[in-house]
Amino acid sequence: MDVTTARERLQDMLAELDRSIRVLRGDPVGVRERSAADAGADLTDNDRAQAMLTAATAQRRAVVEAMRRLEDGVYGRCVDCAQPVPEGRLEARPEAARCVQCQGKRERRR
């Protein structure tokens, strides 16, 4: 993926993640009288929103790091082994920091 395309895709992803994070941080529950069942449903909704916020924040961090690698001239190189990250992987996940092999090793360690 060329640098211009990568930059555009990463900027688009960052803008979309920022919008999602703003929505998830908002108060989706209006001011109204609530029953015990409503309170339980709100907890579930809040837990789900918190999980989505955590995932969006982590992805945002990965996108910002990818943009930094782009500016540093090392975008598209694995941060662990410095080998090229396959083009298809970057097409699917422009924020990818590792080649498939190193990413697999990282996930197996978790």
Score class of each variant (00 low, 15 high):
35 S>E: 08
2 D>V: 02
85 V>R: 01
109 R>D: 13
97 A>R: 05
25 R>S: 05
95 E>A: 09
9 R>W: 06
13 M>I: 07
63 V>T: 00
25 R>V: 05
98 R>V: 02
57 T>I: 07
67 M>Q: 12
93 R>N: 12
77 R>D: 08
33 E>A: 15
83 Q>P: 05
94 P>A: 02
38 D>G: 04
54 T>K: 11
7 R>T: 06
30 G>R: 13
70 L>H: 01
107 E>V: 02
85 V>K: 00
26 G>T: 04
98 R>L: 14
12 D>N: 08
38 D>Y: 06
14 L>N: 11
4 T>M: 11
65 E>S: 11
41 A>N: 11
18 D>Y: 08
26 G>W: 01
15 A>L: 13
69 R>W: 01
46 N>D: 13
55 A>S: 12
46 N>C: 05
69 R>S: 02
97 A>W: 02
88 G>K: 04
38 D>Q: 00
39 A>C: 11
70 L>I: 05
23 V>L: 08
52 M>R: 09
78 C>D: 01
5 T>K: 14
86 P>K: 02
94 P>S: 04
99 C>Y: 00
28 P>T: 01
97 A>F: 05
61 R>N: 14
77 R>E: 11
27 D>T: 08
92 A>G: 03
23 V>M: 09
56 A>Q: 07
14 L>S: 07
40 G>E: 14
46 N>W: 15
38 D>E: 04
36 A>R: 13
31 V>A: 09
18 D>S: 08
32 R>E: 10
74 V>F: 08
104 G>P: 03
60 R>K: 11
24 L>P: 00
91 E>Y: 08
52 M>I: 10
49 A>I: 07
45 D>P: 04
84 P>W: 06
43 L>T: 11
50 Q>S: 10
54 T>V: 13
42 D>F: 02
54 T>A: 13
13 M>N: 09
35 S>D: 04
33 E>L: 13
87 E>G: 10
54 T>S: 15
41 A>P: 03
43 L>F: 08
101 Q>A: 15
33 E>M: 04
10 L>V: 03
82 A>T: 15
74 V>T: 10
48 R>I: 07
97 A>E: 07
64 V>C: 03
4 T>H: 09
100 V>G: 04
92 A>D: 03
38 D>I: 03
101 Q>T: 15
86 P>N: 03
77 R>V: 12
11 Q>E: 09
50 Q>M: 09
63 V>Q: 00
86 P>I: 02
